[in-house]
Design a binder for these strands. Structure first.
Lengths: 160, 160
DNA sequence: TCTCGATTGCAAATCGGTATCACATAGCGT
DNA sequence: ACGCTATGTGATACCGATTTGCAATCGAGA
């Protein structure tokens, strides 16, 4: 087991969950990958844990979500993605490079809703557009980011 | 055909699409249901149009989305939902009654992102919490909303 | 170490959504 | 109104993602 998994173990125990090897590795991997879906996590981990089952990935993500340790991202046209829970924030999805960027959404808008009579408990914002680095690259077709470059192009159809 | 379908016909023709009975009825139904998924639309319409196929619902929603006549909603844990296109707005999902409420999000935040160097083209915000009417009802367990009361309760598991 | 309940992993089922293709229809010119 | 042709519709098969059932295994406390 990787040394930094002690951290994950602590979080799991704090939530009253058993700290199993799989859970610690999944949390650890999710922390490294950032915004990952079940498939990516599975494919990443199965290389080092050949016996890992997809079921375990799904079960674990579900359990961790229930325990409040991971968030589920909400992005249209994308499958379900997960991230380690932290302070609430929005996401920005760049349609050029497909990168998902955490936006430090100061909850200003949530507050304005709050004052309008709604109780806002969760924030699932996602903005789509073009990120800074893609703008910087301008109209050049240089694509440097290796991750998910296809599925989010201008065509509005689902990238399956 | 329902008399008010003339409205739908106009929209379809304006987008260069053929105005078929199914398309008009699907648009009309979507307008009545508000935020519906393909399944709800199908189940709602198949009662009056027994020959309707799910494929047609999916095809039509896809075509209408491409034509810009319907939006796709992005709400975590919910399947793909659709609504008639209008001015951009966010959604508020009440975890008590399960209702989805349109929020007149003035894009103030989108603008602040814009000035921060991002180009925001699409806004897919969704807030979760407790809506006004549920707050008004207080802790009383009276549930008056007939629609979708089960799938969105406090338990974070997917309501399938 | 032992024991028991929780977790894991396999296989199969399910589910939402898509691809294919024959048939029906709308919309156009006549 | 009639017939032609592109387009839309619907039945079925199909797909990948996710869930379920259940037996084997593991983790944590006695």
């Amino acid at each position: 087991m990787k040394p930094n998994c002690i951290d994950e173990r602590g979080k799991l125990v704090a939530c009253g969950m058993k700290s199993t090897y799989q859970r610690m590795r999944i949390m650890n991997c999710l922390g490294r990958l950032g915004h990952a879906d079940a498939k990516e996590l599975y494919e990443c981990l199965v290389q080092e844990m050949p016996s890992l089952s997809k079921t375990t990935v799904y079960n674990t993500l579900d359990a961790l979500h229930k325990a409040g340790l991971v968030n589920i991202l909400s992005i249209t046209g994308e499958g379900t993605r997960y991230e380690l829970a932290g302070k609430p924030h929005c996401h920005f999805l760049c349609r050029k490079c497909g990168k998902i960027i955490d936006m430090n959404f100061s909850c200003a808008h949530a507050h304005s809703l709050q004052s309008d009579g709604y109780i806002v408990e969760e924030l699932l914002g996602c903005f789509k557009g073009v990120c800074k680095s893609c703008q910087a690259r301008g109209a050049k077709s240089t694509r440097r980011t290796p991750a998910a470059p296809e599925s989010l192009k201008s065509t509005p159809r689902k990238g399956r």
